[in-house]
Design a protein around this nucleic acid. Structure first.
Length: 554
RNA sequence: UGGCCUAUAGUAUAAUGGUAGUACGACAGAUUUUGGUUCUGUUCGUCUUGGUUCGAAUCCAGGUAGGCCAACCA
C-alpha cells in the first residue's frame, strides 16, 4: 500500500512520469533575511526539503535579499542555524538573489529593448492613481510611450545613481486594464540608496520581488517553486516575465500557510512583541519562532512530525496548538529522563523512620526506554512533596494524601498520613506527619497493601534549589489577530510566564547541561535554559503532562 | 461592484466516478509504583440547489460562505 500524496507531490509525481525536466526535481526555500523563522516557515522548509528528498531531488537555500533597508546578516545567520537545527541540509547550495543582480539587470535591459518596459518618473501616488481599481481600468501616462532609446538611457542613469530615491521606477509594459492588478504595469526596479548587507554600495537600484524571485528560480533552474497562497495572484506575472525573457520555465505552486491557534504568525506582529518587550526576544520560549521553540525544549523531530501531520492543501486552516503539544509530548515521552522535582514544596516528616538514617532508592531513568538504566536517589525521614498532593478534606475521587490516607512515595515506601501541623500564628500548613510501612519498600514489597496514589518527593536533606520558568500560552484568545477593530495585543496573557525561584530537585540534576530535556515526574517536560549558571539551574517548562484529573475538575 | 483561489467530523487531512478513511480532540473502559504511557471502544462529517451518470465528496451550472489582490514590501 502506497501512502497518499499531497497535491504538490502529485504534481511532481506527474511531472516525473511525463519526463518534464528529464525527471529532475529542484525546490528552494527562499526566506527574506528580515526576521527570524517561525513554525510557519518550518512547514514550508519541511515541504520543500521533504518533497525534494522524496523524489530524489535537491533543495536550494536562497535568501530573497532584494530590499536592503529591512535586511541584515543577523537574520541570515539565524535562519541558517534554524534550518540546520530542524535537520535539513542545503549542502553547498546557499544562494542569494543579490548574487544575480547583474543578470537581473540584464534581463531588464532586454525587456526595455523589446519595448516591454519603461522608466516612469511619476510619483508613487500618481502611479497608484493611474492603476485604477479592480473595477476601473488604469490609464496610461506620458512615459508609457517613451522611446526605447530614452528608456535605455534613463535606466542606465538610474543604475548610475543619477536620480534621487523615489524619482523614478522601471515598469513592465503589460496591461493597464487587466483584472489582475499585478499586471497593470508593475514596478520592476526602484531606487534605494541604502547599504546592502552583501553587495554593499554597489547598487542604487534594486529589483522588486516579482522581478527577482522568478528570475532567481529560473537562473537556478528550480523546477517547482513552492510558495504560499497569497502569491496566487502573482503567478500570471511570474509566468509573463519568464515567457518574455525566454528563460528556464520554473513553475510556481501555492499551498495554504500555517495558522496556529493562540498565537500570531506575522513577522510584523512578532517584531512588535519583541520591540515592545512583551517577550524577552525572538527566542523567548513563548514565541512561535523556531528559536523560541528550541529554547522552550521542543525537539526538531517533534516539529517535523507536526509538519507531517498537518498536511498540505490549499484550504485556509487553523491548527490547534494542542496538536503541536501532542507531538512534542510524544517524542519527549520516549527520550526524556524522569527526574523528581517538587515545584510547590511542603515538608513531610516520617515519624517512625529513624532520623539518623538514609538509604538509596533505585529509580528508572525512563520506563519507556529500558536502556536508559537506573539511578539512585537518597531517602530519609524528611522529604518535600507537592502541596497539591495533600488535602485536609479530600474532594470526591481524590486519591492522594489526607489525614488517614495512604500513598506510595515513588520508588520508596507506602506512607500513611497521620496529621498536618499548622503554624499557630499565620495558619499556614507547616509540616505533614506520616508513618511508613517498612515492608513496603519498592522492589521488595511484602506488605500486601495496594494504594491508588503514587507521588513524587525529594529528600529534604539533599535537595537542590532550582528555578522553574513555567510558561503558558502567550495569548488568551484562540485567534488574537482575528478580531476586527481590536489589536492583537489586547489578548496577551498576563500570566504567560510564572517563575518558581525555589523548586526542590533531587541532587542528580546538577549534572544537567544546557538543552538537556527531562520529564519532571508528574509535572511536565522541562529543559535546562541558557540562563543557567553553576549553582543556579534554570529550567523552562516545555509542556505539561496530560492531566485528566485536573481537566475533570474544571 | 472586477479577477483569482477555496469549501469533507470540533480541528486538520485522505478517498483522483464505485464501501467516506486516518490523526489529533472529546467521551467511556482496561492496564499502570507518573491521575503520565500503553491498549480497547464510542462519538461526530461531504456548504447549498439543480444537472450529467447505473452510480457523484469527486464532473458541470447556479447560489452561499471564506481567503487573496489596487506597497517604489516579500
Amino acid at each position: 500500500m502506497s501512502e497518499s500524496l499531497n497535491f504538490i507531490e502529485e504534481i511532481i509525481a506527474k511531472d516525473i512520469a511525463e519526463g518534464t525536466h528529464e525527471g529532475r526535481v529542484l525546490t528552494r526555500f527562499p526566506p527574506e533575511p528580515n526576521g527570524y523563522l517561525h513554525i510557519g516557515h518550518a512547514k514550508s522548509i519541511c515541504l520543500n526539503f521533504g518533497v525534494a528528498k522524496k523524489f530524489g531531488g535537491k533543495t536550494n537555500l536562497r535568501f530573497d535579499d532584494t530590499n536592503p533597508v529591512t535586511e541584515d546578516v543577523e537574520y541570515v545567520d539565524s535562519i541558517k542555524q534554524d534550518i540546520q537545527w530542524l535537520g535539513f541540509d542545503w549542502e553547498d547550495r546557499e544562494f542569494y538573489a543579490s548574487d544575480y543582480f547583474q543578470q537581473i539587470y540584464d534581463f531588464a535591459v532586454k525587456l526595455i529593448q523589446d519595448g516591454k518596459a519603461y522608466v516612469d518618473h511619476s510619483t508613487p501616488d500618481e502611479i497608484a492613481g493611474q492603476k485604477g481599481s479592480p473595477t476601473v481600468p488604469g490609464t496610461p501616462n506620458q512615459y508609457r510611450d517613451q522611446s526605447i532609446e530614452d528608456n535605455l538611457a534613463q535606466f542606465e542613469k538610474m543604475r548610475a545613481g543619477a536620480f534621487d530615491e523615489g524619482a523614478c521606477v522601471l515598469r513592465a509594459k503589460i496591461d493597464l486594464a487587466s483584472p489582475n492588478m499585478h499586471l497593470r504595469d508593475p514596478v520592476m526596479y526602484r531606487i534605494k540608496k541604502a547599504h546592502h548587507h552583501r553587495t554593499g554600495d554597489q547598487w542604487f537600484i534594486y529589483p522588486m520581488y516579482d522581478f527577482a524571485h522568478g528570475q532567481s528560480d529560473s537562473i537556478e533552474q528550480v523546477t517547482h517553486s513552492i510558495c504560499t497562497l497569497e502569491f496566487e495572484n502573482h503567478k500570471p506575472l511570474y509566468d509573463w516575465y519568464i515567457h518574455q525573457l525566454g528563460i528556464f520555465p520554473s513553475h510556481q505552486y501555492e499551498f495554504a500557510r500555517l495558522n496556529l491557534s493562540y498565537t500570531v504568525m506575522s513577522k510584523r506582529k512578532l517584531l512588535q512583541l519583541v520591540n515592545e518587550e512583551y517577550v524577552s526576544g525572538w527566542n523567548d520560549p513563548r514565541m512561535p519562532t523556531i528559536s523560541g521553540l528550541r529554547r522552550r525544549g521542543y525537539t526538531p523531530e517533534s516539529i517535523r512530525d507536526f509538519a507531517e501531520r498537518i498536511g498540505i492543501a490549499k484550504r485556509e486552516n487553523v491548527i490547534d496548538v494542542s496538536l503541536l503539544e501532542f507531538c512534542v509530548r510524544e517524542h519527549l515521552n520516549k527520550i526524556a529522563a524522569r527526574y523528581m522535582v517538587v515545584q510547590n514544596p511542603i515538608k513531610l516528616r516520617i515519624t517512625n523512620y529513624p532520623d539518623d538514617t538514609s538509604e538509596m532508592m533505585s529509580i528508572s531513568n525512563n520506563p519507556e526506554d529500558e536502556s536508559a538504566g537506573t539511578r539512585l536517589v537518597p531517602f530519609c525521614n524528611e522529604v518535600y512533596i507537592e502541596a497539591e498532593d495533600y488535602m485536609e478534606v479530600p474532594s470526591k475521587g481524590y486519591f492522594r494524601l489526607y489525614p488517614g490516607g495512604m500513598v506510595r512515595l515513588k520508588n520508596a515506601y507506602i506512607i500513611k498520613c497521620e496529621k498536618a501541623i499548622y503554624n499557630p500564628t499565620n495558619g499556614d500548613l507547616e509540616v505533614i506527619e506520616a508513618s511508613y510501612i517498612p515492608e513496603s519498600r519498592s522492589g521488595n514489597d511484602t506488605s500486601g497493601i495496594n494504594v491508588k496514589g503514587t507521588i513524587h518527593w525529594v529528600s529534604a536533606n539533599e535537595a537542590v534549589n532550582v528555578e522553574l520558568r513555567v510558561y503558558d500560552r502567550l495569548f488568551t484568545d484562540e485567534s488574537p489577530d482575528g478580531h476586527e477593530g481590536k489589536d492583537f495585543k489586547e489578548f496577551i496573557n498576563p500570566n504567560s510566564l510564572q517563575i518558581i525561584p525555589n523548586a526542590k530537585a533531587e541532587t542528580n540534576i546538577i549534572n544537567a547541561k544546557p538543552g538537556d530535556r527531562y520529564q519532571f515526574l508528574r509535572l511536565g517536560y522541562y529543559c535546562l535554559d541558557q540562563d543557567s549558571a553553576p549553582g543556579h539551574l534554570v529550567f523552562n517548562r516545555t509542556v505539561t503532562l496530560k492531566d485528566t484529573w485536573a481537566k475533570g475538575k474544571k
